[in-house]
Design a binder for these strands. Structure first.
Length: 794
DNA sequence: TTGTCGCGGGG
DNA sequence: GTGTACGCGACAA
């Protein structure tokens, strides 16, 4: 692993204290920090209790004038209340510290109360322009230069997974009947309530807490741990009036911390106040946070639920047991073994998922002065970069700028050009890797108020770290712990690097935001996009669409892939050093419909539809199917084939050969019968009219129904069984005329850009009137329309 | 048809 | 002591 270097900038990235093996940190208002470290190799855990001086950063010393001689200059070993002034022109420039947080707070507030009309309960009630107050453990980490996990690998952590099985989702009504635990050694243990009584559940809670204490993990993990298991446990313990805690500090209990993605604890002035639970000494990690981050980068997950993610990532064990959520308790009563298998598989999948995706937060916790559990759910800009910058400034002895709401300058966006519509063949996609971070580094675009230059220095370091980690990861044996660590490091760096641009633009949220710098980045980005479009244009290709950092273009006949790659490399050579244009893919054909709406046909025959025009779940299945088949024919240049698909579909509709199911809309009910009755007069809605028409006056919100238009024009319900069974009970009484109008007006219209107007008329002429042009269609080619060719100079 | 608001999960 | 984005569905205008 990377040791902290000796340089100033190394300290900005890694901290500077070499203490190895820290797995958790807690600090209290008495000025005590509890530091849990793995020792004796990694076999044991030790808790050091160390003194630290709570501190606050102030814009003015006026509030402390009342201290008189009790206020002393900061010096090593100083006792009592001390202060020092930082360099530079930042507004937050006085570091005031004390032996304990209460003394510090009382001293500052005594002065501040004289100036403020409102009540001040604590330092956090001061304006952000007057004071910067970090959580206590972050005060400790920033001041000490310590970070988590130095010299530890992810697999050195003691990680325990737990998963509740309950009779329902409401902790005020439902109860816990089983807890599956996976111990740090990988063994699964089931704790079960002996019956449905409150005493049995109390006993279960006590055994769970005992078990965790005995196994003594550093980390507790589950999927939706913070959204379900922890709040449920705490609520049950409250209702059953039994103590419950998961931490390592005796008597600390389950504490709360503010968290954006927490559960609602109270209603505040600016919306609900949300909290997450925390337990001193152990890190409470929710794998759903890691899943969200992962999907944010890859956007390939089918959903964020445990089962779907585990299946998708190949983590589901052989013979995985599945039980629908609402049946878990009922199944347990008649077949407890099945639920035991199910719950065991849950914790095993969570362990795999946490290891696969949790390494990124682990890597960040070795750098940023925050608890591992906070880095796991933090946004990368405010959650990772900001704390690192605060630490860098204090380390350098430089004052921090006060929060700033910007000067009202609006944020300008990326460029989007549509050069052509219709069908193009031999299409190439090229894009610039990490365009915005590359521009920031190339042109040294950083926040204007960052006089220290720490922002760009940190981004530079992270890019280097990422490249090194990628190289080392490739060199390491597949599936090895070493490879896992490098891949996690690379993922963590990617996350932060890609958020650096967002950091600049986050006016009012990040400490050093700078909308002018962000606009300079997008301006340079538009410039690069224009430059590469012009360069491609000059080389005889047909530009199709360019968006932000990528471009689609069509190459002349005779180009093979090698020639395409040479062309991309040629244009790449014209770009600034750090801005690299890469070959991203090649396609047999593209139907360009509107900006960000297109269809691609791969050389392997795969059809990709992008944009709302081509994929809407509101579309009736028959229309979607028609569009896919017809678009594919069009992309192959087979206009007569498009006609054939249309004729076939239209005739099938007219003959009612298509199942009613394929003409339905799937609608989720959102109004109760009473609510709909109230609005029915103003506006009639198909789904509810269908329900009423079927004589149904009772339904529940959330129910999904299939609705279609009956030949009479009235809304009708279709009973759709779970599995498709071509039904004897399929009524086939849909409104054919309406469906035909939809086919032509809604679906065929998506292909209009690829056909000349007269060809469109011929292709989609009424099928029972054989077209005069039927023969001519065999020689009709799809159309490509070149739009205005001006490539705007930025 | 076209903007905005809110969600994504857990039993 | 808190702030992602993206794509989609629901709802209102």
């Amino acid at each position: 692993m990377t040791p902290p270097g000796a340089g100033v900038e190394d300290a900005w990235v890694w901290g500077w204290d070499p203490t190895p093996g820290i797995v958790s940190v807690w600090a209290d208002a008495d000025g005590r920090a509890f530091v849990w470290r793995r020792t004796n190799g990694i076999a044991a855990v030790a808790c050091d209790e160390v003194r630290f001086r709570p501190w606050v950063l102030l814009a003015s010393m006026a509030d402390l004038a009342h201290l008189g001689a009790r206020l002393q200059p900061d010096a090593p070993g100083v006792r009592g209340i001390a202060w020092r002034e930082l360099d530079g022109d930042g507004a937050l420039r006085f570091v005031v510290s004390a032996d304990d947080a209460r003394t510090l707070s009382a001293a500052v507030l005594q002065g501040a109360r004289g100036r403020h009309a409102r009540r001040l309960a604590g330092l956090r009630d001061l304006d952000a322009s007057e004071a910067l107050v970090l959580p206590l453990e972050e005060q400790y980490l920033v001041a000490s230069g310590r970070t988590h996990f130095r010299d530890l690998a992810f697999d050195d952590l003691r990680r325990l997974q737990l998963d509740l099985e309950t009779t329902g989702l409401d902790a005020d009504r439902d109860r816990i009947f089983l807890v599956a635990v996976r111990n740090p050694d990988g063994r699964a243990v089931l704790l079960e309530a002996r019956d449905g009584s409150p005493d049995a559940e109390r006993d279960l809670l006590r055994r769970l807490a005992d078990h965790v204490r005995a196994e003594d993990p550093d980390v507790i993990e589950n999927h939706n741990l913070h959204g379900f298991d922890l709040p449920f446990l705490v609520r049950r313990a409250e209702r059953l009036r039994v103590p419950f805690a998961l931490g390592r500090l005796p008597g600390a209990g389950m504490l709360r911390r503010a968290a954006r993605r927490g559960i609602v604890a109270a209603e505040g002035a600016d919306g609900p106040l949300r909290v997450r639970f925390t337990a001193p000494g152990r890190e409470l990690i929710d794998t759903m946070d890691a899943v969200r981050r992962h999907d944010f980068a890859t956007r390939e997950l089918p959903g964020h639920g445990l089962k779907a993610v585990a299946r998708h990532l190949g983590l589901a064990p052989e013979g995985r047991e599945y039980v629908p959520g609402h049946e878990v308790h009922a199944v347990y009563l008649r077949d407890p073994e099945r639920v035991r298998r199910y719950a065991t598989h849950d914790v095993e999948e969570v362990a795999g998922l946490a290891r696969l995706l949790g390494g990124a937060a682990f890597a960040l916790a070795r750098m940023a002065p925050r608890r591992y559990e906070r880095l796991a759910d933090a946004g990368p800009a405010t959650g990772v970069i900001d704390p690192m910058l605060v630490r860098a400034y204090l380390r350098a002895g430089r004052a921090l700028p006060a929060p700033y709401d910007g000067d009202g300058t609006v944020h300008t966006g990326a460029a989007l050009h549509l050069f052509a519509t219709g069908v193009a063949r031999r299409v190439v996609k090229a894009d610039v890797a990490s365009l915005y971070p590359s521009l920031m580094r190339q042109y040294r675009i950083g926040p204007v108020r960052d006089g220290l230059g720490a922002f760009l220095a940190i981004v530079d370091r992270m890019v280097d770290l990422r490249l090194a980690a990628k190289a080392r990861g490739r060199a390491a044996p597949p599936a090895s712990a070493e490879r896992h660590e490098h891949e996690a490091m690379s993922a963590a760096m990617k996350l932060v690097i890609n958020s650096a641009y967002g950091y600049l633009g986050a006016v009012g949220l990040t400490r050093f935001h700078d909308v002018h710098a962000a606009n300079e980045v997008t301006r340079r980005g538009r410039e690069v996009l224009s430059l590469l479009c012009r360069a491609l244009d000059q080389r005889g290709v047909t530009l199709l669409e360019a968006d932000t950092d990528g471009v689609y273009f069509a190459v002349p006949e005779g180009f093979d892939e090698a020639a395409e790659r040479r062309l991309v490399a040629e244009v790449d050579a014209l770009l600034p050093e750090r801005v690299r244009l890469e070959f991203d893919g090649r396609y047999a054909a593209m139907l360009s419909h509107e900006p960000k709406n297109y269809a691609l046909l791969g050389y392997d025959g795969r059809l990709v539809l992008r944009g709302v025009a081509f994929r809407s779940s509101r579309s009736e299945p028959f229309g979607e199917a028609f569009l896919r088949r017809a678009a594919e024919r069009l992309l192959r240049g087979d206009v007569a084939g498009v006609r054939a698909v249309y004729v076939e579909t239209a005739l099938a509709l007219r003959a009612r050969e298509l199942p009613t199911r394929s003409l339905t809309n799937r609608v989720r009910l959102t109004k109760t019968p009473e609510q709909y009755a109230a609005t029915r007069g103003a506006r009639r809605e198909l789904a509810y009219e269908a329900l009423l028409g079927a004589g149904r006056t009772v339904w529940s919100v959330g129910e999904r129904v299939h609705v279609y238009r009956h030949r009479t024009g009235a809304a009708r319900l279709l009973a759709v069984p779970d599995v498709d069974e071509p039904g004897a009970d399929d009524p086939r009484d849909y409104d054919v005329g309406y469906a035909l109008r939809q086919l032509r007006g809604t679906f065929a219209a998506r292909l209009a850009r690829g056909l000349a107007p007269d060809a469109f008329v011929a292709v989609f002429a009424e099928p029972w009137q054989p077209s005069l042009f039927e023969l001519a269609l065999r020689t009709t080619a799809p159309l490509l329309t070149i739009l205005g060719r001006s490539i705007a100079e930025p």
